[in-house]
């Protein structure tokens, strides 16, 4: 695209200059007086999948909001550090501008447009791209999720949870992103459906789209991602190649629920998440 600037000289690029992708460095985010992220460094090289793990309230959604430009909807702001994609800065950009740079988020909780049909939801995802590209994207999405074609005329609010998640991902793909941000895509889904979503993520990545995946389903996320980051109370406490993390004692015990009893529940940092969120226990779920 002509609007994209070349990487400015001196920009740090830990993904290597040939795969610059998403670069986050020294990121701090505040919601008013509340500091939700502190000194976060993270990279998603072009073509890769990166995973972010962490407990409720760790700041995972905040991290995605900082990338997608939606902090302002929550009275939050980046107070220091930078977010850049392929050399152009995203921090400070409006959400719509971020989409036009090729970074699109499927939000937490799916948030399909319930009063609109499935087809209209997909159309909404393609509002920022020309008609021809939208048609091509629709083909890709319906190929990936054939059920969306069957349900095209149905109101999105009537879809099952799994179908809504497929729609949310499909809708995000309609803009033809280079980087897809996914916020807990398997939350609340039965194992079979979660596996389906995981398969779709793998396929999306194989088609050349890089993915930043936020998950509490650590086993699934580590299996999909090349690199993983562990967020704890707003800080990255652990990061590295997924295979190494999955093999490490720390992650096995706390994130994969192996070798430790699931007794030490976290104290919820956000009262708003009390209840349902704390019931997620069991193997392969966040249990620390």
């Amino acid at each position: 695209m002509s609007g994209e600037a070349d990487p400015p000289a001196g920009e740090p690029a830990s993904g290597g200059p040939e795969r610059p992708g998403l670069q986050i460095s020294g990121l701090e985010v505040r919601y008013g007086p509340v500091r939700a992220l502190r000194d976060v460094h993270l990279a998603v090289p072009d073509g890769s999948v990166a995973a972010v793990l962490g407990a409720n309230g760790a700041g995972k959604t905040t991290l995605l909001r900082a990338v997608s430009g939606t902090l302002r909807f929550h009275n939050g702001a980046i107070t220091s550090g930078t977010v850049s994609f392929r050399g152009s800065r995203l921090d400070g950009a409006h959400a719509a501008a971020v989409v036009r740079r090729g970074v699109v988020q499927a939000p937490e909780g799916r948030r399909v447009f319930a009063r609109m049909t499935v087809a209209e939801n997909l159309r909404a995802g393609a509002l920022s791209v020309p008609r021809r590209r939208a048609a091509a994207a629709r083909e890709r999405v319906l190929d990936l999720f054939p059920v969306l074609a069957e349900r095209a005329r149905q109101r999105a609010g009537l879809l099952s949870g799994g179908e809504q998640q497929m729609l949310a991902i499909g809708r995000a793909l309609m803009a033809g992103p280079s980087l897809l941000l996914l916020d807990e895509p398997t939350l609340g889904l039965a194992p079979l459906m979660a596996a389906k979503i995981a398969g779709a993520v793998r396929q999306i990545n194989a088609q050349g789209t890089s993915v930043l995946l936020v998950e509490q389903n650590a086993a699934m996320a580590l299996a999909l991602a090349e690199r993983a980051y562990v967020l704890e109370v707003g800080e990255v406490t652990l990061s590295g190649p997924s295979a190494e993390l999955a093999a490490g004692d720390e992650v096995r015990r706390r994130y994969l629920g192996i070798g430790a009893p699931n007794t030490d529940r976290p104290v919820g940092t956000d009262p708003g998440f009390a209840g349902e969120g704390h019931e997620r226990t069991g193997l392969a779920r966040w249990t620390a």
Binding site: P107, R111, A114, L127, A175
Partner: peptide, 14 residues
């Protein structure tokens, strides 16, 4: 209509 239903998500759609 997307904006009317959910402005933040509409913004995420560009």
């Amino acid at each position: 209509r997307a904006t009317a239903e959910d402005a933040e998500t509409a913004a995420l759609m560009g």
